[in-house]
Amino acid sequence: MLKHIRKALAISALSLAVSTAAFAQDKPKVAFVPQLIGIPYFNAMEAGGNRAAKELGVDFIYSGPVDTNPVDQLQIVQNLIDQGVNAISVSVLDASSIAPVVEAAKAKGIKLFTSDSDAPDSGRAVYVAQATDEGLGNTIIDELVKRVGEDAKIGIVSGEATASNLNAWIGFMQKQASAKYPKLKLLEPQYAGGTAERAAQISGDLMAANPDIKAIIAVASTTCPGVAQAIETAGKIGSVIGAGYCSPNTARSYLKSGAFGFTVLWDPAQLGYLTVWAGKQLIDGKAFEAENKVPGFDNPVTYDAAKGILLLGPPAVFTAENVDKFDF
């Protein structure tokens, strides 16, 4: 065993010099590490990132864990650092878990930043946000109140209990409800993990436990089909509306059947594009302006220097009427 390690060490000493020389001629590399691969949302971000890479002249690497496991995500980031990728963006699964790799990246002069899900106090270079966590939490509550009124009971079904971005959104939902709509009753959030089946089971139980429930919020995009389906099977279309953060493609049939009233989302492809663009800016050493002109974006992208947040813009609300205009 040790012999092999020694051999690897010896070879490494030789190859280190060669590899650094080889890297210099390559295009700069920007990586994005999603929370989970194999789901439409992050696939769309990958597509946007690829488009940006082509237009901006960088290499784009997309690699993420197959389970929502922070250690697996950490391992992927660490390997990207070892590879000498110039800028690495992470949709953080668990805000405090990336601390060890932030240091490692700094030591190697690699730009590590967050995108889609933040780790505020980790020392990351910038956070490319789809919208503020506050904006997302508030929008869903405001939109729901428009539809079911202030005097309503609302259930929350989330994915993994450990996902820090989802928990932040839930936190702002609760804050908004207690601050602005004192009569609104948000039930304790329930966690379905990553499966639609569990989400459906829990939503069904929630509706049985609260016959007066007016709406159920599907917080993780993986829970959207389950929540919608539970409303359909329970025959509660019309009396209970589903809502959540899901892509138009996932939610289309539920929006049309009436199981879902609306979904709140941004264009993940645009977010992917912006992520790669931000990576390129960081590599080039260009500072972000208060308003940035990004190729392909109609509106300038704002940058909050105090919080270090680059903001995609306000989230979009998709309903049965406008959903067919979108394909992601």
Binding site: A8, S12, A13, Q83
Partner: peptide, 11 residues
């Protein structure tokens, strides 16, 4: 070949 660095072993 660039994989073989001390950093990789550490990782």
């Amino acid at each position: 070949p660039s994989v073989f660095s001390l950093a990789t072993v550490t990782t």
